Simulated scan of single mutants.
Amino acid sequence: MNTFYDNLINNLKNQLLSVYILQGKEIILCQESEKIICIYAQKQGYSNKKYFYPINELEWKHIFLIYQMQNIFLKKIILIITIFINDVKNDNYKYIIILLKRINKNIILIIKCYENYFFKKNKIFLHHTYMLGTIVNCVINNKIEFILWFERKINDLKIIMNKKTKKLLYQYYENNLFSLSKILEVISLIYFNSIIKIENIRNIITDEGLFTAYQWAQSVLNGNGIQAIRILNLLHKNNYEPLILIRVLQKILIKIIYQSHNIRTEQKKITKINNNNQILENYNKKKYIHLIYKIIKILTFLEIKIKTNKKCSIWIQLKTLSLILTKYHT
């Protein structure tokens, strides 16, 4: 079965499935889908949750062990696995299919991948998934869907606002559901049970607007250290996943290195990530490539560190790296 985010609640009311694959570039929709599934699962006794970010065979074996232990002790659990797009390789497909074959009634499996329709590329994976569960496409395909999501969100938060205010939010947060969702939550707390006018939120969206990993990376590579640190502070405050920040910056830095060696890159994707072609030109200089290699190694170290110890905080290190890169901006 294949469904969209909009239909998820209706499907859950009818039946709680064993497997949910959440795929799509709209991170907030993936997060909301995960939250909704967990709420319905907890009502049926799945009280524990475990999160995994597997990148190698050893980490997958740890997940298999959890599967085995749950089967022995008959404890109900929700396993949430995040697969980053660079890690979705044949080996990972193999491990996921093994999990699907071992599924039992004590486990709800949620797999997240922040890429649109990526899992369509593996027919064997799709076959096993559709036998046990569904794929939830967490995407907004057009402006109409964006507006419908926005209207539903303000209704859920019981926000009352006039048309001018809505239009301002449309324009300011177009194609940025994550930031729009967070700012609406802030607005609902400040102006609870009152009509919100454009004057009420103008300062909020300019001074307290929440951002995404791409906007942080763009600020860093554009040399705007103050903006980068402010974004990090806001992301930290709202429990943003630091692994996403690491992966985004890694991806952009690797593209810069590729360009320095005259390797052809996909210019449209680069432009989409940073919205500024000057970024690559600024860092595509021999004297900075050595620094970029060091930064990538540090990011890899931080990634291993946080995966080894989920309680470990790396926000100070991310702020330090932001300042280092903005310092060398030209």
Score class of each variant (00 low, 15 high):
63 I>W: 02
64 F>D: 04
64 F>I: 03
65 L>H: 05
65 L>P: 03
66 I>P: 00
67 Y>P: 01
68 Q>H: 13
68 Q>C: 05
69 M>H: 05
69 M>L: 15
69 M>W: 01
69 M>T: 09
69 M>A: 07
70 Q>P: 02
70 Q>I: 01
71 N>L: 13
71 N>M: 08
72 I>S: 12
72 I>P: 04
72 I>W: 08
74 L>N: 05
74 L>K: 03
75 K>D: 04
75 K>G: 03
75 K>Q: 10
76 K>R: 14
78 I>G: 00
79 L>I: 14
79 L>H: 03
79 L>S: 03
79 L>Y: 05
80 I>P: 01
80 I>H: 07
80 I>V: 15
80 I>M: 03
82 T>M: 04
83 I>A: 01
84 F>H: 09
85 I>L: 14
85 I>F: 06
86 N>L: 06
87 D>K: 02
88 V>H: 10
88 V>I: 14
88 V>T: 03
88 V>S: 08
89 K>N: 14
89 K>R: 14
90 N>R: 12
90 N>L: 15
90 N>W: 12
92 N>W: 08
93 Y>T: 08
93 Y>M: 09
94 K>R: 14
94 K>M: 11
95 Y>L: 00
95 Y>C: 02
96 I>E: 07
96 I>H: 01
97 I>C: 06
97 I>M: 11
98 I>E: 09
99 L>Q: 07
99 L>E: 03
99 L>A: 11
99 L>F: 01
100 L>N: 08
101 K>H: 13
101 K>V: 12
101 K>L: 15
101 K>Q: 15
102 R>I: 04
102 R>C: 02
102 R>T: 09
